[in-house]
Amino acid sequence: MSGDIIGIWIGAILTLGIFSFLYKDNPFYKFSEALFVGISAGYWFVVTFWQYFVPKFWDNLSLSFHELVANGRIDYHWIYLVGGFFGVLMLLRLVPKIGWLSRWSLAFIVGTTAGLQFTRYLESNGIRQVVGTIKPLVVGGNLGTSIGNIIIVVGTFTGLIYFFFSKEHKGAFGGAARVGVWFLMINFGAMFGYTVMSRMSLLIGRMDYLFSDWLKLIK
């Protein structure tokens, strides 16, 4: 048996293990689930280590160290020690007496991410969406586009009204919010349709794996 065949057998058995949950929770499923937790945690740690930690931290500091030893110069790569410093502070969470120091690294991540997201949200979720919604309501000689543009403007506006909870949804305001719900339902329906199709596609993929790669019943 070659390595590939053993691998396919293992993959097929684990696939059946996961599908066995359709019957009920059972040891076969639990085994596959426990294995997945361990394998995925190990996989992502190792990948992150080689793809991010080594090039961004280790390689940069090695360059600085070589520069220092060879030429006696302190170059700018030492600045990556700051990241390492915050990283070590994060690990101090494991030392109860000084665990509060890990808040510094958490604060660094939260602060920089918040600042970054502030401008990103402002641009992509705010300005770009508003610009995309400001459309001509009447396009000469093209009734379809005109109707489409009117629907987009009305749908966006009423959808936003639905999310405005500072005023009770009553009267004309409530009516607009109700129209907003209809548009939101169209979006949820589309998302649901896409989700079902993607899951079906994965299911077909698994069946293909079982019947074609494993059992060789489909050529």
Partner: peptide, 20 residues
């Protein structure tokens, strides 16, 4: 491209305002 896009824009704006 039309009604779904309108709802997506409303949701995106809501998320954006909340995020900001």
């Amino acid at each position: 491209t039309v009604p779904n896009m309108a709802a997506k824009r409303a949701i995106a704006m809501g998320i954006g305002l909340g995020g900001i």
